[in-house]
Amino acid sequence: MIEVQGITKSFGTTLALDDVSFRIDKGEILGFLGPNGAGKSTTMKIITTFLAPDAGTVKVDGIDVLEQPLAVRGRIGYLPENVPLYPDMNVEEYLSFVGQARGLDGARLKERLDWCVEACGLVTEFKKPIGDLSKGYKQRTGLAQALIHDPDILILDEPTSGLDPLQILGIRELIKSLAGQKTIIFSTHILQEVGPVTDRVVIINEGGIIADGHLDELARDAMGDDRVILAVRNAPGSVEEALRGVPGVTAVKVLASPGLDSTGTSRFEIRGPFDQDLIGQLDRLCKEHGWELTELREAMFSLEDTFIELTRRSLGHGRKEVA
């Protein structure tokens, strides 16, 4: 559906994007992650034909953005980071304007207006001047604008920025409700926002893609090896030794020992390769020794850990100065 191939873009002497490639299939939702200034917006501006890449190609629905920009624009609904609103118009006038500019009129325009206003929760604000709306409603008006022509593709640049938790939840629900019907790229620098909406992410840092995949794969990749948390109560001092003896275990870290923990629990973090079924082995070990097992689980990296680890690894591979 969208294919980004080796795009590079510099502004003056700053290389904003360096050989960025990724693809999204029809109906997928892609979380586009990265710190501020990483190149998220620039990438989106190139996909939406607002900017042209210095090198590389972008194809939307098989159409090259440089060759037929108008055809690409017609397929995309775009919410720029800086929400493009006319404060002197009211919501209805504004959405009608965008709808007409995108080729809608008559009954079809009316139908889409009704749908967008309903879906974006703007019913009560329909006749209010945009300049008088709260930040949350402005953001929703921007989103409604991107949806007005019922596009197959949605490009949303920081759609939840500046909203309160309840409003964020609303936007999230809206994006999720469009899943399957539409191909969506949404960017954010807030990691927690991605998980609830999609598990497909692309992480960009300093103009380069540092990760592309599903959240759990990326977390595994970032962790390097499997980590299991094991806690046993009233166990003998030989537990640690026994754990080290389990095949495949490369490291055992004591997180808590009975002396420190009033419940008499010992907790360990055990590391080993992913293909060794550590959990199963540890479970059997506890049963053999008759230890009182209170906790046995995989310690997955959170998105934050993943992000920090991947960003750390990519250091030095990111943005370079152009000569």
Partner: peptide
């Protein structure tokens, strides 16, 4: 200044 330029330049019209 307000950002609507980006809207106008991504409309499907020349």
């Amino acid at each position: 200044r307000t950002g609507t330029f980006e809207l106008l330049m991504t409309l499907p019209m020349p």
